[in-house]
Computed example of a mutant assay.
Amino acid sequence: MDKPIIPYGRQHIDQNDIDAVINTLTSDFLTQGPKVSEFEKKFAEYVGSKYAVAVSNATAGLHIAVMALGLKPGERVITTPITFAASANCVRYCDGEVWFADIDANTYTLSLESTKRLIESKPKGFFKGIIPVDFAGLPVDLEEFRNLANEHNLWIIEDACHAPGGYFTDTKGVKQMCGNGKYADIGIFSFHPVKHIACGEGGMVTTNNEALYNKLSKLRTHGITKDNMEENHGGWYYEMQELGYNYRLTDIQSALGITQLSKNDEGVLKRNEIANRYKEAFRDKIKYQSLPDQTYNAHHLFVIEVVDRKKLYDYLRTHNIFAQIHYIPVHTLPYYKEIGYGDANLRNSENYYSKCISLPMYPTLLEEEQTYVVDRILEFLEEHTK
């Protein structure tokens, strides 16, 4: 009998999701209709932000976020090298410069100390912003980053694509949900199928700033608006006030997003149960991402570090376990090496990449499947440590 295939991530679509999409398909709107605004409202309520703007994908969201914050050609933004390339590419789309600070060796998120050192090594005003990433679902302590940003007059975009439902607790004892806009100017989320909320594709941009919200809304829709127009010749009239993009989400995707969002708390709870079983099995045997006190990891990923990573990766595939690597450090990718980032001193990031492997992590992962994964890993380690 063939062994079942166990991927690192998998979407879960149930009958409620299917019914929501069918109902939208038989309605009057398929694209920019009432489901988009309903999804935006419910998502803003979920994360605790004032505003949310639905977009075609998180990369589009990052792009218009950088644009809305007014980044000009040649201006510099700091981010982490351990992320998907889009976290850095959004700066390049605006002809800005990306500078990488190192990660913390235990949380795998952008290091506050490394970021501070980088900022303080340059003249005042050298940098314009910071893009921290809630890597694998672990929230960055944005209160600390906000204090640093305020000191140097920087904006913050929180890349929360891995972390809907995650939170950290600030110094006042308040739970700060990822993307709520309390400490970051803008938050970004992804609805790619392997993420928590699957819309096929899609993303959401959150903020508490009304001016940024209005700017994001225009940039998402060709730079066109019917609000605050200089003239109005009739109900058909609109103005294109700046050069924007067609980064809109459809009603079909939004209907799916609404039902997916309603299950996210349950899904994140399940992800944490899976993570805790991994931790129990690997404690004192294998290194995994640390969890700061009073922080709730939304666990898009569960990452471990092993010395013989490539051998383990291949070994697991022979057993139909399709683990993945997240991520190749952005500064080592050919595009970034060609523009001078290849020699960056990012020791923690490169050490992490040499050992990291993401294990199966999704709410429908069966306990017996997880046990099978754990057994194969421990079996591999025993064979390779003799």
Rank of each mutant, 00 (worst) to 15 (best):
P4E: 08
G9V: 02
H12S: 15
I13N: 09
D14F: 06
N16S: 13
V21K: 12
K35I: 01
F43R: 04
A44K: 05
A52Y: 01
V53P: 00
S56M: 13
N57M: 05
H63K: 13
A65Q: 03
L71G: 01
T79D: 02
C94D: 05
D95M: 10
D95G: 06
E97G: 00
D102C: 09
E113N: 11
E113A: 10
S114H: 04
R117I: 10
L118S: 07
K122G: 03
G125F: 03
G125Y: 05
K128A: 06
P132T: 03
F135A: 14
A136C: 14
E151D: 10
L154Q: 01
F168I: 04
F168E: 02
K182M: 12
D185I: 00
I186S: 05
F191R: 08
P193C: 12
G200Y: 05
G200L: 09
E201S: 13
T207N: 08
N208S: 07
L219P: 00
H222D: 09
W236I: 09
E242Y: 00
G244Y: 00
Y245E: 10
Q253G: 15
S254K: 08
K263N: 13
N264R: 13
G267K: 15
V268S: 07
D284Y: 07
P292H: 08
P292Y: 06
V303H: 03
I304W: 00
V306Q: 08
I321Q: 03
A323D: 01
I325Y: 02
H326D: 14
P329N: 06
P334S: 12
G340L: 07
Y341S: 13
Y352D: 05
Y353G: 01
Y362I: 04
Y362W: 11
E367H: 13
E369S: 15
Q370F: 02
Q370W: 01
Y372T: 11
V374T: 10
R376K: 15
I377K: 03
T385M: 14
